[in-house]
């Protein structure tokens, strides 16, 4: 029962979705709109589930004074503060919620991401080396593209943007298209396996 019901649901839903996708009928449009609402409801429930799971995990960590529990305390306190402010006083333009979002969350998130620049530079120096003919080819292509993308490159060699554009729109594009086709065919095959119940690993089986 645990396996058959989800398999039947998957199969029927897939048939409905395929029929709706290829049917230019008003009923199809209606089903599409309804499904969009379902998706929003499922998305909302998924978000709540995720939040409960997050809270449980961090509250347990705080209760047992596990390693780095003060970070968990900050997480829970921030979560509760934003939830109370958002639900109680709204999230519109001049709300406290929006002020914290713009002046704390946005800069913090952007800062975390910008730290990447330091690690990318360090990793590029350490690992991007011509250890073989293939690596040398990759390295040359990367340097040509990087050179063409920065204004300095254009100052040193006027044609560098054109050369970079050729690398991007000819050899790289060919390879990209091949990967795209491969991935798409793989995606279709996997979808068919799931719809027909051949692939069951997502249900906890052995597939």
């Amino acid at each position: 029962m645990k396996i058959r019901v989800p398999l039947a649901l998957t199969f029927v839903t897939a048939l409905v979705m395929i029929a709706v996708f290829f049917t230019p009928h008003r009923l199809g449009s209606y089903v599409q709109s309804e499904l969009s609402d379902w998706m929003a409801v499922i998305g909302g429930l998924g978000l709540v589930l995720g939040l409960i799971s997050l809270l449980q995990r961090h509250l347990r960590k705080i209760a047992h004074r596990q390693q780095d529990w003060p970070y968990s305390f900050v997480t829970v306190a921030s979560f509760l503060l934003m939830a109370v402010l958002g639900v109680g006083w709204g999230v519109q333009d001049e709300s406290v919620f929006n002020w914290i979002f713009s002046n704390a969350y946005l800069p913090l998130d952007a800062t975390m991401f910008s730290i990447l620049a330091f690690f990318v530079a360090s990793a590029a120096f350490r690992t991007f080396r011509a250890r073989s003919a293939e690596a040398a080819l990759l390295l040359t292509a990367a340097l040509v593209v990087m050179f063409g993308r920065v204004p300095w490159g254009q100052l040193l060699f006027e044609q560098s943007p054109m050369v970079a554009e050729w690398v991007m729109s000819s050899p790289a594009l060919g390879a990209k298209r091949a990967i795209l086709l491969g991935v798409s065919l793989g995606g279709i095959a996997m979808s068919l396996r799931i719809i027909l119940g051949i692939e069951r690993s997502h249900l906890g089986g052995d597939g």
Binding site: A121, A124, F125, L139, W152
Partner: peptide, 12 residues
């Protein structure tokens, strides 16, 4: 970006 290019060339 220019520094990264220089670092890659120097590293090699």
């Amino acid at each position: 970006h220019f520094l990264i290019i220089a670092l890659v060339i120097f590293g090699n």
